[in-house]
């Protein structure tokens, strides 16, 4: 799984748990979102998110 690199985290924020320690079967999990890499506000509005790590644009050519 492609986990966020803890080296990119600001030093004052403790390393968060992206996934629970005990993962159970027959359950769905979405990793917690690390709070990092914010877009400038005008760019965030254009892109539809403040968070670079949630920005997943649609490539029309991939149809």
């Amino acid at each position: 799984m492609n986990m966020p690199n803890p080296k990119n985290m600001p030093k004052q924020i403790p390393m968060p748990m992206y996934m629970p320690k005990d993962i159970k079967l027959a359950r769905a999990y979405v990793p917690n979102q690390p709070y990092e890499r914010l877009f400038p506000l005008d760019e965030a509005l254009k892109k539809g998110t403040l968070f670079a790590n949630l920005y997943q644009p649609y490539d029309r050519r991939n149809q």
Binding site: P20, A28, Y29, V30, P31, N32, Q33, K47, G48, T49, F51, L54, Y55, Q56, P57, Y58
Partner: peptide, 17 residues
């Protein structure tokens, strides 16, 4: 609007946790 759906999916995933 499509990008907002991606963000909402993440938020509901967090709510599920």
């Amino acid at each position: 609007l499509r990008q907002r759906e991606v963000v909402h999916f993440q938020r509901f995933g967090e709510a599920l946790r």
